[in-house]
């Protein structure tokens, strides 16, 4: 497949015949170079985005708008390549927008991809770092684990999923981890139980200098509760609702140590022990009825798209 840079790539020979004219503007959007269906309802897209790939750092995110009618949704980067000029995102179908995103095939375009946004992860040599990933959180935590390992840390990873069928990137994360503990809620793979159980054991039995936890907000909340008595600095990557992603609207505001902060520009990573979890969890449920309504509507749209694609 021919891979064409759709934005950002300075070119030696630009359009309109002016030598040395670099192209920044793009009409088409962003090309999906590769699509992988990792597990049911979790997908990986590799997207041509040279400018974002040049700047991306672990912990940062992009805002994606699929098409003219789409929402702007934040997705933390799962990987990027300066050389290949692309970025990788992994997402789970959880609502209308992600369901529509999942209808995009290789060779198709996403209208808008903006980034890299947010503050990169703090990466130093802390000593022993435990990375805890829940569900789709394994994707954003992997580049963080990689950066931590490159900085000289000993990385222990805990990867949890509801069951074996929903587990992915285990090998990937393992390659940056000295040790790996896998859990499933139902015991269908690895250890039966929640990620907080092995986390608590590690904290009791070993010296842990830092914990990074990424997953559903409820999981991150319980990781924070688990590490707090041990006084181990714990970093979480928050996932509130966003619109612009540049500090303009305040939709993603969270309370950190009693102060209001914007996740998009001050985060997405914060000290887990300072986060007002109940507020975050409540704010994530701002639009239950609207989400239901949009989901029903989009099911029909997704079905129509499949019909057209299959020539039926």
């Amino acid at each position: 497949m021919e891979v064409v840079a759709k934005e950002g790539q300075p070119r030696q020979s630009g359009d309109s015949g002016t030598p040395g004219k670099e192209k920044f503007a793009s009409e088409e959007g962003f090309l999906v170079i590769e699509r992988q269906d990792l597990v049911p309802r979790i997908h990986l897209f590799r997207i041509a985005a040279p400018a974002i790939a040049r700047k991306a750092k672990a912990g940062q995110f992009v805002i994606i708008r699929l098409d003219e009618v789409g929402e702007r949704i934040p997705l933390t980067l799962a990987d990027w390549s300066k050389d290949n000029e692309d970025i990788t995102i992994v997402f789970m179908e959880v609502g209308a927008s992600t369901m529509m995103l999942a209808t995009v095939d290789e060779g198709e375009y996403i209208k808008d991809v903006v980034g890299p946004l947010g503050v990169p992860s703090e990466v130093e040599n802390y000593g022993h770092v435990v990375c805890v990933a829940g569900g789709v959180g394994v994707a954003p935590i992997t580049p963080i684990a990689r950066a931590l390992k490159e900085a000289g840390n000993k990385v222990t990873s805990i990867l949890g999923a509801r069951n074996q069928d929903l587990m992915f990137w285990e090998k990937h994360l393992r390659s940056f981890s000295e040790r790996m503990i896998v859990t499933t809620d139902d015991g269908s793979y690895g250890r039966k139980g929640l990620v907080t159980e092995p986390l608590a054991e590690l904290l009791q039995n070993e010296k842990v200098d830092r914990v990074v936890a990424i997953g559903p907000a409820i999981m991150m909340k319980f990781c924070a509760k688990c590490t707090e008595p041990f006084g181990v600095k714990t970093i979480v990557s928050l996932n509130p609702i966003m619109v612009d992603g540049t500090g303009m609207c305040g939709c993603c505001r969270v309370s950190i140590g009693g102060e209001t902060r914007f996740t998009c520009v001050d985060g997405p990573e914060f000290d887990a022990h300072q986060v007002d979890w109940d507020e975050l969890l409540a704010r994530q449920r701002t639009y239950p009825e609207k989400e239901h309504h949009a989901f029903k509507d989009c099911k029909w749209r997704a079905f129509q798209k499949t019909l057209v694609a299959s020539g039926g």
Binding site: V69, E71, R72, A96, V243, K290, A294, C298
Partner: peptide, 26 residues
Amino acid sequence: YSANEFLTRVNLMKAYLFPQYLTPVN
């Protein structure tokens, strides 16, 4: 809402045409 968020949802994201446009506003 901040007025910026409210107006951005309504004007830029066209929440007044929800669910044709997918951005909601309450």
